[in-house]
Simulated assay, not measured.
Amino acid sequence: MSLDADQIVERRRLRRKVTFWRTLGVLAAVAALAVGVASVAGDSVSASSPHVARVTIGGIIRNDRARVELLEEIGRSRARAVILSIDSPGGTVTGSEQLFDALRRLAEKKPVVAVVEGIAASGAYIAALGADHIVARRNALVGSVGVIYQYPNVTELLKTVGVTMEDIKSSPLKASPNPYTPTTPEARAAVESLVKDSYAWFKGLVSERRKMSDDKLATVTDGRVFTGHQGLDLQLVDELGDERTARAWLAREKGVPENLRVRSWRTREVDSEFGWLLGAARGTVAALGFPQAAEFLTQTARGALERAQLDGLLALWHPRTNG
């Protein structure tokens, strides 16, 4: 009889544990669903009615076919104008080029104004160049015109552990540079030619779109970032302000009523192949009553994952830290 009683107690404990984890799972799922529903339901303005489209460019810029298709869809919609809200340190050169080209095609159909909310550096500034008008907050960061190619070299580390990497190549510059052998002068020169070629393209884009003198172009293309206030004098931006400033410019220059409602457009795809994992983590933490911690977790993890997936030539502002 005692054994039966112990079994009953143990079963009840097990049932309570299962119920707890099931409830937690349901709460996490509901929280994640609520986030998704809120992001979709937040825009009550129909794409088939006149409106101002808002597109957000944030995080690391990479090749993104879904975003290109989104911009093409906006071009076919009844949007009267497009506000490009930017807060990004840049990304890959090809991803930034793809975004710029898509924005210029869109600008042929509808006026596009960029609003730099926090930072539009490197590849993100390339995106801003795709707009007809650039507005920046007074203390936003803009510029960082330049290209970088980074790769680690662990030659000395391998020596300390007694490891030697050997390879058989079809030619001296195949797979060069690589992290396992010292970089040869020929390999360095080959990479430098890539960087210089992309840098010349970037400088030409700035010169063409911003109509700068040679002296001013030399100043803004040395790799530095500038505040919006500095960028105004250097012709990197057209006005200081925010989205209201952009709406006023659209009304003044393009005849788009300032009272026309804004619709935020988003791609239907998650940010990365790890999006489901980030969403689940965010939902669980939020369900436990820590929404700010959930947001911090999501942004930190997303930034780390995006940077880890970058490769090739970069138009990216990343301040170095010592220590």
Rank of each mutant, 00 (worst) to 15 (best):
N63I: 02
V37F: 11
I168N: 12
V161A: 12
A121S: 12
A251V: 03
P152Y: 05
E156T: 13
A32T: 11
I74M: 02
P152N: 08
V135D: 00
D242C: 07
T321N: 08
T221A: 14
G42D: 07
D6V: 10
G283C: 07
L313R: 04
Q230Y: 06
D233I: 07
T267F: 00
H318T: 12
E295K: 08
R266G: 04
G279R: 06
E208F: 09
T56L: 08
W201T: 13
R13G: 07
K254G: 08
E273S: 13
V237F: 04
I74E: 00
G223P: 07
F226L: 09
A301Y: 10
E253Q: 14
L310N: 05
A32Q: 09
S49P: 00
V26Q: 12
A248Q: 12
A79D: 01
I61D: 00
D167R: 13
S198K: 12
A28K: 03
S48I: 02
A246Y: 02
K211S: 13
G25Q: 06
G143Q: 04
Q230S: 11
V52H: 06
S176F: 05
Q309D: 15
A107M: 03
P182C: 02
V220E: 03
I74C: 02
G59N: 11
G289P: 00
L99S: 00
G312S: 12
T23M: 11
L310Q: 06
G130H: 07
S49M: 04
G312R: 06
E273H: 14
V237I: 13
G95H: 00
W201I: 09
L27K: 03
E192V: 01
R188T: 01
G130L: 05
R78K: 13
V220H: 00
E117K: 08
I83D: 00
I74T: 01
A136H: 04
V147I: 13
I126T: 12
Q309A: 15
D64S: 03
V262K: 09
T184K: 03
L24P: 04
E108C: 04
R263L: 00
L141A: 15
P257F: 02
E73D: 13
F100I: 04
E156P: 02
K216R: 15
E156R: 14
G283E: 00
F274A: 14
E97G: 07
V30P: 11
W21N: 05
L33G: 12
A281C: 10
P89R: 08
L310H: 07
K110Y: 00
